[in-house]
Structures are given as C-alpha cells and as structure tokens.
Amino acid sequence: MGFDPRHWSGGRPEQRVTSNVEALLAENDALRREVLRLNRELERLQRQRIRTQARSHRPWSEPSAQAPPRISSQQVRAWGHALAQQQGWTALRQRGLELLIEQLNRSGFPAHLSLEQRLDRLVPGLGTDLLAAVGAKPNKQTTAVLAAFALFGVRASEWLDEDPQRVVEQLRQRQEQSGSRRQGRRTRTDQRQTDRPENGHARDPRRAALKVLGLDANASLAEIKQAHRKLVKQHHPDLGGSAEAFRRVNEAYQSLV
C-alpha cells in the first residue's frame, strides 16, 4: 500500500492537507515543460550568437567585401611607370625580379609564406589587394612593384611614392647579388680542391650557422630558437633593420633546424 497525501492530516482525521493534488501535479508538469522550452530557446540563441561572431571575425587572409582596396591598379601602374623612368631600369630583368621575390620570401619567417600571405600578416588585406591590382599576367613594371614590396614590406608604398630612383638602385643591386650567388653555387662533386681548407677538412656548415646566430658549437635547440627570435626582431627590414642580415639569420636558422 502506498501513501496518499490527500488522506494525511497529521494525526487529526478531521483535517486534510489538500484535496487537489492532481491539479498540483498537472501544474508541476506544465512548469517542467516550460523550463525545457526555455532551455531549448536559450540554446538556439547561443548558437545564433556564435554564428554571428564567426561571420564578423574573418581570418586575416580574407579581404573585407565592404572595405575599399588598399592598393588600386592605377597606383600599381603609376608606380611601375615611375620606376621605368629611373636610371638603371634597363639593367633590371623581369625573370631576375621574379627570382628575387622568391629569394626574399624564402629568407622571411616563416619561409613557406608567399608574398601575398606575408603582406596580409603585416596589414590584413594588403597582399590580397596588391596581387589583385597587379593582375594575373604581370609585366616587368608590375613585377618590379611586387619586388619592391618583397624588399621593403609595408613601407614599399612610401619608397615608391617618394624615391623611385632608390627603389631601382636597391632592386638592381639585389638582383646582381642574387645572380652572382646562383652562378657561384657548385655541388660537392664540382668543388675544386682550392676551395677546401688547407688542413683537408671540409668546412663545417653547422659551426658557420651557429656563428651567424652568435652561438657556440654546443648550443641547444632551445638556445638556437631563442637567438633566432632575438635576431629576427633586431634585423627585420620593416623595423629598420638590414635585409641582408635578416636573410643570413633565417638561412642559418633553417640550416640548423
């Protein structure tokens, strides 16, 4: 036998707690259903808020559909035309400029990023707008503009506006240096005897790379990474450092890791 609260009177049979327990139970069920409905509505609103936030916070590489382009095709054409009027322009070659862009990208950190991705990291949308303004088939002038951004980073627009002659000189020098390095490369089997140290021991590339980072031969991987981060910040061209020193530091680090 079960306990029926309707018949409980606390020891006094003449009193009853309630005669409407069924109504209370029905009301309790209605409240439970309302709580479940409100919880489902809350979950729906939370999912809607998360989707709204995801749409409003786009990745750094995704250009905004509303914002005007940071670089226009008219700007790129004007920069290219100004470069073509400078002394030393004829010494530049489109293929040499393309190879220079690849080399500067490899010397950056991390080395796997393209010029578009690297610029987008510095200023969201800059690289995307630049490549769109250049177009799918760059000529010598627009390739020189790309090479200027690869060399000077986000400050390239200032150099192109204020001193295009300096830009041509820098590109010509870097193109010549890049060409001489490619011509000077030989495999180990092609290496002449006169290129080897007199003691007969081959040059230790690890020791040379550690020397660039300012470390001794017993440096650990953690010390190598710490020294690389410090020197990258010190020599980054966008922070006023030397592009050549920045390249040497990255090449040394890549050879070590």
Rank of each mutant, 00 (worst) to 15 (best):
L100Q: 10
L100M: 13
L100T: 07
I101L: 12
E102I: 06
E102V: 11
Q103T: 14
Q103Y: 09
N105R: 15
N105G: 14
N105W: 04
N105Q: 15
N105H: 11
N105L: 10
N105Y: 03
R106W: 10
R106S: 07
R106Y: 13
R106N: 09
R106K: 11
R106T: 13
S107K: 08
G108K: 05
G108T: 14
G108D: 15
G108C: 12
F109Q: 11
F109P: 01
F109H: 15
P110H: 07
P110R: 08
P110A: 06
A111L: 05
A111T: 13
H112S: 07
H112G: 01
L113R: 14
L113W: 14
L113K: 12
L113Q: 14
L113S: 03
S114K: 10
S114T: 15
S114R: 13
S114C: 05
S114Q: 10
S114W: 04
L115V: 06
L115M: 11
L115D: 08
E116W: 04
E116H: 06
E116M: 13
Q117P: 00
Q117T: 13
Q117M: 12
Q117E: 15
L119S: 08
L119N: 08
D120G: 04
D120A: 06
R121M: 09
R121F: 07
L122Q: 15
L122E: 14
L122F: 02
V123T: 15
V123Y: 07
V123E: 15
P124K: 05
P124Q: 08
G125S: 08
G125A: 08
L126C: 02
L126D: 01
L126K: 03
L126G: 00
L126M: 13
G127C: 04
G127P: 00
G127T: 01
G127D: 02
G127Q: 02
T128Q: 08
T128N: 10
D129V: 01
D129P: 00
L130S: 02
L130F: 05
L130I: 04
L131R: 12
L131A: 04
L131G: 00
L131C: 04
A132Q: 13
A133E: 06
A133G: 05
A133C: 09
A133K: 06
V134W: 03
V134K: 02
V134R: 02
G135E: 12
G135V: 13
G135M: 12
A136W: 03
A136T: 10
P138T: 05
P138E: 05
P138S: 06
P138N: 05
N139M: 04
N139A: 11
K140L: 14
Q141F: 07
Q141V: 07
Q141T: 06
Q141Y: 04
Q141S: 13
T142K: 10
T142D: 01
T142Q: 12
T142P: 00
T143D: 00
T143H: 01
A144L: 06
A144N: 01
A144C: 03
V145F: 07
V145E: 02
L146H: 06
A147H: 03
A148C: 06
A148K: 02
F149S: 02
F149P: 00
F149K: 01
F149L: 03
F149T: 01
A150H: 04
L151C: 07
F152W: 11
